[in-house]
Design a protein around this nucleic acid. Structure first.
Length: 671
DNA sequence: GTTCTAGAAC
DNA sequence: GTTCTAGAAC
């Protein structure tokens, strides 16, 4: 099931690789950043997303983290991104350079127009998104101007373009606006005046932190020095091992009954780990079921690929700022999970106090999600007994033990909250496993209390349909599948294995359901490898109907997929046009259930079953998300506004096209 | 899943 | 005042 290569370029040429670019605009207020972005987007046929800090918060000014999050999502969806904020110094730019993959090109466009021009423009403008206008604008520009710092390739940019006047800007707009999907630009610095002349025009402070060595070091490697926690030492485990193992076993014993069928495994990288053997012995003494709690020697970041263990949830002994660094498990976890974990973490909590934890659902764009099947990371902060680190408890083991106990307790509470809904329903199904790294205690204290909002997430895990009771209103599809003859008025097609109907409450112009007729297949949770032929048949039937409907109206585009956790009983495939133009599309859940990873594309479901033999399902935490347009990725404040926006947004569905998920008159799946 | 509606948000 | 959301009931 691969994309039909014939479809994409109309010329029949083999599809070239799509080049994604992140362009970091650099310039004072009034330098023309927003105009640059708007002009480029206007003339370009490439899917640009403008990430504007002045308007990112429902049209109001937002935070850098919001910008990072939106930019990361846009890149994930195959868009190129324009970062429309001042990005005046290296520090401001650094996080944006970590976005995207190694294939993503990082460009800087410097709008270094005269300060006087920036000021006069800012003062005069009205209706500015960031409300920066009038006299205050002049103040801000004057304040900001001395802090300007010239970007360098060594920061991580592939290309830097300097504009000093309106003519330069126009040329840059033309250049970026003319880039088609697969075009690239030469790497290097372009248009830069000589250093001497720059000093002459009085931008001396651009050199504030300039590296005079002339070395253009590769920056991406130095991620270690983020935050106070970074250091050359690995996380020194200086908690008394006897005491620690007592507490661990005691806490495991207390919580093991509360996590249903889920399992706990404690992991250490080193053979002959003292803490592992102590815990193992003590757990055995207490007759803790070794099927439910075990120890394991191996790399926590590669448990599935190298250890053969299928785990969803990883406990991470982090630092108080919940940031990468430290060199131990924490550094490894952040590295394996990628930058999206940092973004997802920041959205849930800024810092942790000792003994606290935060549950972070891992975005599906994380490499760890795909490679190892990790769905959640629980960051937890333990007590610090190392005098070389701040907030050392010295030898105060009364306090230390209390905090360690709290740390494990909150960790297991967090884990239980993830697995609870389905964890104890299934007898033979998949399970969520929490991994408790050995050096799970460390470092600093923090004064602020943590928002534990992250703890209320539910996990996909197992939806044991054998035990699930379905409400009467949820039985309609089941009844149709079991006796299609009694529903001839609504059945479009019936075969031995499937029934096709129009959805009674279509969420788009065209919305069909391909329902499996098999007994005992209530939802994706019941599907296993043996159902692959059925799933393929459902896909083919859905595809056939989509193609038929496209023949009748070639502007329709379709997506085929399943809800991770359906409301209606009986496995059913949605065949839904991507206009989402329907009076029945009413609430957030309607939208999010089709436009987040809660919706699983049929091709991907089959692929996962073939490759892994089991499925990774989405969970209901996606329903907490924002209402983002599936085309241009803009965020809309409520459903009516989103629906209004959808009526006019014409951006291509790049993400779906790229992944071969979209069925349109332009192309189709191979069979 | 939908409908209805109280009350929150604007 | 109107618009919009979200929870209860089915």
């Amino acid at each position: 099931m691969e994309i039909d290569q014939r479809n994409t370029p109309p010329g029949g040429k083999k599809r070239e690789e799509l080049k994604q670019i992140i362009v970091v605009l650099i310039g004072l207020p009034g330098s023309g950043k927003s105009t640059f972005c708007e002009e480029v987007a206007k003339i370009s046929n490439r899917p640009w997303v403008r990430v504007c800090q002045d308007a990112i918060n429902n049209g109001k000014s937002g935070t850098k983290i919001m910008c990072l999050s939106v930019a990361a999502a846009a890149l994930e969806y195959g868009k190129s991104v324009l970062i429309d904020r001042c990005n005046i110094d290296k520090e401001q730019r650094a996080d944006f350079l970590k976005l995207g993959g190694s294939e993503t090109e990082k460009h800087a466009v410097v709008l270094d127009l005269p300060n006087s021009l920036c000021i006069s423009r800012s003062v005069k403008r009205s209706g500015h998104e960031g409300k920066l206008q009038g006299g205050r604008a002049a103040q801000v520009v004057n304040h900001m101007a001395p802090k300007k710092e010239l970007p360098k390739l060594s920061e991580g940019f592939n290309r830097i373009m300097f504009c000093y006047n309106e003519k330069d800007v126009k040329e840059a707009i033309k250049l970026y606006g003319s880039l088609s999907l697969c075009d690239s630009l030469p790497f290097g610095c372009f248009g830069q005046k000589s250093v001497d002349s720059m000093v002459q025009v009085g931008i001396r402070s651009f050199f504030k932190k300039q590296d005079t060595s002339g070395n253009a070091k590769s920056v991406p490697e130095d991620s270690g020095n983020q935050g106070a926690e970074a250091g050359s030492h690995t996380a020194d485990f200086q908690f008394d091992l006897e005491k620690a193992s007592d507490i661990i076993v005691e806490q495991v014993e207390e919580y093991i009954g509360r996590i249903g069928e889920a399992k706990l495994v404690m992991v250490d990288l080193s053979h002959g780990s003292k803490i592992l053997s102590l815990v193992k012995t003590k757990a055995a003494k207490k007759n803790i079921d070794s099927n439910k709690f075990s120890t394991f020697v191996g790399d926590i970041t590669q448990l599935r690929s190298c250890g053969g263990l299928s785990c969803n949830v990883i406990a991470n002994p982090t630092n108080w700022e919940i940031k990468p660094g430290g060199g131990g498990v924490n550094a490894a976890v952040f590295k394996a999970a990628g930058f999206v974990l940092e973004v997802a973490t920041k959205e849930r909590a800024e810092k942790l106090a000792a003994g606290e934890c935060v549950v972070v659902p891992l975005p599906s764009s994380s490499p760890w999600f795909g490679a190892e099947g990790v769905t959640h990371v629980i960051h937890v902060l333990g007590p610090n007994m190392n005098p070389k680190r701040p907030n050392c408890l010295k030898d105060d083991y009364t306090k230390g033990c209390k905090i360690l106990r709290e740390a494990y307790s909150s960790l297991f509470e967090g884990f239980a909250s993830i697995v609870k809904p389905y964890g104890n329903k299934d007898q033979n199904g998949k399970r969520a496993a929490a991994y408790v790294p050995e050096n799970n205690k460390k470092t600093k204290d923090s004064s602020s209390s943590l928002s534990k909002s992250g703890v209320n997430n539910r996990n996909q895990d197992e939806q044991g349909s054998n035990t699930k009771t379905w409400n009467p209103w949820a039985q309609a599809l089941h009844k149709i599948a079991m006796s299609p003859d009694s529903h001839k008025d609504i059945v479009l097609e019936v075969s031995d294995h499937v029934v096709v109907i129009k959805d009674s409450y279509p969420k788009a112009q065209q919305h069909l359901l391909v329902i499996a007729r098999c007994h005992g297949l209530d939802s994706l949770a019941d599907v296993s490898g043996e159902d692959i032929p059925l799933m393929k048949e459902m896909h083919d039937v859905g595809l056939k109907w989509a193609e038929k409907l496209i023949l009748e109206n070639n502007s329709l585009e379709f997506r085929l997929g399943y809800h991770s956790i359906p409301s209606m009983r009986q496995l059913h495939l949605h065949v839904i046009s991507q206009d989402f133009d329907s009076t029945h599309l009413k609430n957030k859940k309607h939208w999010l259930s089709f436009n987040t990873p809660f919706f699983l594309d049929s091709v991907n479901v089959v692929k996962q079953l073939e490759e892994a033999g089991e499925l990774r399902l989405g969970n209901e935490s996606f329903f907490d998300g924002v209402l983002r347009c599936h085309r241009c990725l803009s965020v809309n404040p409520n459903m009516p506004k989103l629906k209004n926006h959808l009526r006019s947004c014409k951006d291509p569905l790049t993400f779906l096209i790229q992944n071969g998920y979209l069925i349109s008159s332009e192309g189709k799946y191979s069979r």
